[in-house]
């Protein structure tokens, strides 16, 4: 496959479970494609060189910086952004925990942080605080600090673990 530098080529991907397509030059970053071409402005763009983590989205499930990826590289891939989290019944458990624990103030970095936390919680069911802090070290937050975020992630991990305990085990616990 070859795309000329001045050519706008069609990129089709699955964004938050819906097939979407738009046009991008080869040099267009994925974050700009999401925001400017697909109108998905939930993803924020910070440093544009992979340091701050604000633009983190999930690519085929993996939390990745969308400024360090080209739109053309996302062809055919599954993308999940912060817009995927809240459902009809309101904010997701993770979003509610962030609110409860005061894990955000201005919210600029939050869109990316939530996507990292989602992947992390899927892969590490029972994380230690050190593990959560290591995962969060890929993000910069300049107003809140990280304590509330750490508490929120640990809180959600606990709640999700409790929710997945099989019925039989719960009965045993009651005894």
């Amino acid at each position: 496959m070859h795309a000329r530098a001045d050519q706008r080529i069609r990129v089709t991907l699955t964004l938050n479970s819906r097939e979407r397509s738009g046009y991008a030059e080869p040099r267009t970053q994925l974050c700009d494609f999401l925001r400017h071409e697909l109108g998905a402005t939930g993803t924020h763009v910070g440093c544009e060189h992979g340091v701050c983590g604000a633009c983190t989205v999930r690519v085929d499930g993996r939390a990745s910086r969308s400024c360090l990826m080209l739109a053309v590289q996302a062809e055919g891939r599954r993308l999940d952004t912060v817009e995927s989290l809240a459902g009809e019944e309101g904010l997701s458990d993770l979003q509610q925990a962030f609110r409860r624990h005061h894990a955000l103030q201005c919210g600029f970095c939050t869109a990316g942080i939530l996507m990292s936390c989602e992947e992390f919680l899927e892969r590490v069911a029972d994380p230690s605080e050190a593990q959560v802090r290591d995962m969060l070290s890929g993000h910069l937050c300049r107003c809140t600090g990280y304590t509330g975020m750490v508490q929120a992630v640990l809180d959600v991990a606990r709640t999700r673990r409790e929710a997945t305990v099989p019925d039989s085990q719960q009965e045993n616990n009651d005894v």
């Binding site: 496959m1 080869p26 040099r27 970053q29 544009e48």
Partner: peptide
């Protein structure tokens, strides 16, 4: 910043 323009190739081999 944004990258300068380039041709993009995705070879299959």
């Amino acid at each position: 910043m944004k990258p300068a323009a380039f041709d993009y190739w995705r070879p299959s081999s």
